[in-house]
């Protein structure tokens, strides 16, 4: 009963905070409205007794939103941080697409013949989850990790306008490197 009420209250908070993202007129409020929405979803996952997944959702999303707020404020051309702004654009297309997707997903959820539950939840859910992700699919995980890191590094290398030749000179022998911003180690 209590869990049921909590679930629906959190669901309401999640949807309302998600809608608030498009209603509020400040970049910081929009970002943290989204964070509140994610936290509510994370708490719902906690209610489903998936403690690890719930807490990781909250952890990752709050971290992400904290960083995203900085970039949103920094990069948005009209400087919406300092003057009222509107999060929406391309309204007709966006409303059409979102209503369509909602009807599709909600219809699917209502009309699909849901399978009945087979077996019970394992004793230690976190342990079972770890085995599920890292057991049989270890090879996939071991490959995906380095590929993701390589992608990030390659992306940064391609995006940065300074190369190693700018840092270390044409023969790569300049020490210490010529950096616009000094690091914390050895210089």
């Amino acid at each position: 009963m209590v869990i049921g009420i909590a679930f629906w209250v959190l669901a309401g908070v999640a949807v309302a905070a998600g809608a608030a993202v498009f209603v509020v007129d400040s970049m910081a409020r929009a970002t943290y409205a989204l964070a509140v929405s994610f936290i509510a979803v994370g708490l719902q996952i906690l209610l489903l007794q998936q403690s690890y997944l719930g807490l990781i959702t909250i952890l990752m999303m709050v971290m992400e939103m904290a960083v995203m707020a900085v970039y949103m404020v920094m990069f948005m051309g009209m400087n919406p941080a300092l003057m009222p702004m509107d999060m929406t654009h391309g309204k007709k297309t966006a409303i059409g697409a979102s209503v369509g997707v909602f009807v599709l997903l909600a219809g699917g959820a209502l009309l699909i013949p849901w399978p009945t539950r087979r077996g019970g939840p394992p004793e230690d859910l976190t342990h079972a989850l770890g085995l599920e992700i890292m057991g049989e699919k270890m090879l996939v995980m071991a490959v995906v990790g380095p590929v993701m890191v390589a992608t990030i590094v390659a992306g940064v290398v391609l995006a940065a306008h300074r190369t190693r030749y700018d840092r270390l000179g044409d023969d790569l022998r300049r020490r210490p490197a010529d950096d616009p911003q000094s690091g914390g180690v050895g210089r």
């Binding site: 910081a28 943290y32 964070a35 403690s51 690890y52 807490l55 990781i56 909250i58 952890l59 709050v62 971290m63 939103m65 904290a66 707020a69 900085v70 230690d124 859910l125 976190t126």
Partner: peptide
């Protein structure tokens, strides 16, 4: 006696990122 107490600690300390920035903002 949360089965993922260490993650709980971590999640709370990450929330500080948001909180301190919000106070600054």
């Amino acid at each position: 006696d949360l089965d993922v107490g260490v993650v709980w600690f971590n999640a709370v300390d990450v929330v500080v990122w948001a909180l301190v920035w919000l106070v600054g903002w």
